[in-house]
Structure formats: C-alpha cells, structure tokens
C-alpha cells in the first residue's frame, strides 16, 4: 500500500544521523521531527532564526514571538539559540546544516527541483528554499509521486520554474525511495505492498530498477 504522509516522514527520519543539524521544510518534512530514531541526537534549525526547536506548545502557552518558518507556534529545547536571518542563512549557505528536507512540485533526473511557482496561477515565493537547495550537501525531497491528475512529478525535465539545479540526491514518495545519480533515478526501496510495475508506470524520468527491490521497513 502507498504510504501516507506519516509513512513518508517515518522513512525520511531513518536518514537522520547522530549529531546532525537539520532543516525541515513546511508540510511533510515538518512531521519528520516526530520520528527521530532512538539513540541519536539531532537538532532542528528553522530559517526564521532558531536552533533547537521543540514540539508545539501546550494549549495556552503559545508565544507569538516564537514561531517556525511555517509561522506555527513552537517551543524550544534546552540549549536552543535565537539569531537573525543573515546569521541563519550563514548557517545554511556555509554548510553548517547537515541535512535539508523539503517538499517539491517536481524533481528531474539530473537533480533539479521546482517548488515555488506555477506561472499565472500560484506565486507564493521561494522563501528560503533557493538558499537551502543551492548550498545543502544533503537534500532529501518529500513528495507525492504524481499529481491529482495522475501525472508523474518524477520527471526527465522539470516543466515549472526551477528552485535549484542539480541539487537533489534522494527522493522519498508514497511509493518509493529514489536516488538521483548519473542523470537517472535509481529505485532503492518500494513502499510495503507496492509493486515495482506501479512505480515504473508512475515515473516519467529514466528509472534504473535492480533485480531485487527491497520493501521499506517502517
């Protein structure tokens, strides 16, 4: 069965490593914080100016001055730090953040990503996404394999305005874990019960499928 959003978040959480600083984008990426593997310590950075983000506050304890990049009220953990936006992006551009997880509308087999604009329809802006994808060494994209019309979003070439070029290395969808290298998608894992044929049929980009494709362990 295809994964739900929580399933995607759980699978991405398995990529976390001890000692990493991690930036989580809005949407599914935010959920990753709920599934940190036992025994490891990671610290979450939010580009609006906080390191050491904690869970949502208890009802009645919200502080308008304490939000994440999705403008949601949050708390901080012991050892947290606040800073201005220039310092925040120094952390990001300077590669002090080890992992970036973000959503996408499209990715292509050369690692391009599009997630900020649909010309004539939706223009929300890129926020910090262009800075994040241009600099992060390790980017994981959390997304759905196809759009509501059933068209693949895992493409040979992105059709929407790009957010970054040649930057995405790994994609986790409701169907599969894909790695991007040598201008191709490599199928690493499939969601429990999802067939390789289904993944092939929903992937427009060039897909390399090994003889044996293990199921994700969640």
């Amino acid at each position: 069965m295809a994964l739900d959003k929580i399933g995607i978040a759980k699978r991405i959480a398995q990529e976390l490593r001890d000692g990493w600083y991690v930036n989580l984008g809005i949407g599914i990426p935010t959920l990753v914080a709920n599934y940190i593997p036992e025994g490891i310590e990671v610290e979450f950075q939010s580009e609006n100016g906080v390191l050491g983000m904690g869970p949502f506050p208890f009802e009645g304890e919200e502080d308008a001055d304490l939000i994440n990049a999705g403008k949601q009220t949050i708390t901080t953990l012991k050892g947290a730090a606040f800073f201005d936006s220039a310092t925040s992006f120094a952390m990001i551009r300077g590669q002090h953040v080890q992992l970036t997880v973000l959503g996408a509308m499209e990715v292509s087999q050369n690692g391009d990503i599009a997630n900020w604009k649909i010309p004539g329809k939706m223009v929300k802006g890129m926020g910090g996404a262009m800075d994040l994808v241009a600099s992060a060494e390790n980017i994981i994209v959390a997304m759905m394999h196809s759009n509501r019309e059933g068209e693949s979003k895992i493409l040979k070439k992105c059709s929407l305005p790009l957010t970054g070029v040649g930057c995405v290395k790994k994609v986790v969808t409701e169907l599969a874990v894909l790695e991007i290298k040598d201008n191709k998608f490599y199928l690493l894992e499939r969601a429990p019960g999802v067939s390789v044929e289904e993944i092939i049929s929903k992937t427009e980009g060039d897909l390399v499928v090994p003889d044996f494709v293990p199921e994700m362990k969640l």
């Binding site: 201005d84 936006s85 220039a86 551009r93 926020g127 910090g128 996404a129 262009m130 800075d131 241009a134």
Partner: peptide
C-alpha cells in the same frame, strides 16, 4: 531568495555594494 534578501540588507548597511551567492 530569503537568504539573499537578508544578506542584501546586511550588505546595504555594512558598506558592501554586492556579493556572490549560490542561491538562485
């Protein structure tokens, strides 16, 4: 891009007329 916006303001106040960034 947000980081470029922050840095462009910082640069404006810091007497740096322009800078190179990978963002965008």
């Amino acid at each position: 891009p947000q980081g470029s916006l922050a840095e462009r303001c910082r640069a404006g106040g810091a007497g740096i007329p322009a800078f190179f960034t990978p963002a965008g």
